[in-house]
Design a protein around this nucleic acid. Structure first.
Length: 184
DNA sequence: CCGTCGATGTACT
DNA sequence: GTACATCGACGGC
């Protein structure tokens, strides 16, 4: 069995779970998404919680577009916009396509650290702020229309936040060695 | 193995 | 000035 094409106009936590196990490429580089987090408009941990700003404008744009923001002044983080003010942070992937290019961008010896975190993943994929608001169904993005069902999908607390810490909107592929960190 | 810390753009007090 | 959806270098065990 396989699921249908991903519909972004639904609650972000459903999209986040549906993205696990799905193929995602940027200009031919990428792999299988193994970890995501959902953020919602009424969610104190979400960038959109206090309304639009120059940075988070993309979160209020069209479903199925990218929201790329700078994290801690250094890294880039990639989100998929869902309903208005909600998005899914792509936290980790199992790298599979364009490995040589991604290894060159990341300069690490262990493939497990190529995409095992939101900042690592954007560096490996070559994603930066210039991709903000771009449509995810057009090149250079390629998102798998189907995926294997019956995956062992774990959920838990989101990483690196201080508000709404008990909302279990982090999702991951059980047993994957490519997670940013284990689930509890 | 583990914890601490610096880097530093954007948003908020 | 302080916080932050992070990462990697470094030091101690």
């Amino acid at each position: 069995m396989q699921s249908h094409t991903l519909e972004f106009s639904q609650p972000a936590h459903l999209v986040a779970k549906s993205l696990i196990g799905r193929r995602f490429l940027v200009s031919g580089c990428g792999g299988i998404i193994v970890e995501t987090e959902a953020y919602a408009p009424d969610d104190p941990a979400s960038h959109s919680f206090r309304g639009p700003t120059a940075r988070n404008k993309a979160m209020f744009g069209n479903p199925g577009t990218a929201y790329v923001y700078r994290s801690y002044g250094i890294h880039w983080c990639l989100n998929f916009v869902c309903t208005c003010g909600s998005a899914v942070l792509i936290r980790a992937m199992e790298p599979h396509w364009g490995l040589d290019v991604m290894r060159e961008r990341r300069d690490v010896s262990d493939d497990r650290s190529l995409c095992s975190g939101p900042g690592k993943l954007t560096q490996a994929l070559g994603v930066d702020g210039g991709f903000d608001r771009w449509a995810l169904d057009q090149y250079p993005f390629e998102l798998g229309a189907t995926r294997i069902d019956d995956l062992n999908i774990l959920s838990g607390r989101r990483v690196g936040i201080t508000r709404a810490v008990d909302i279990p909107w982090r999702f991951g592929l059980g047993g994957s060695p490519f997670l940013s960190r284990p689930f509890n």
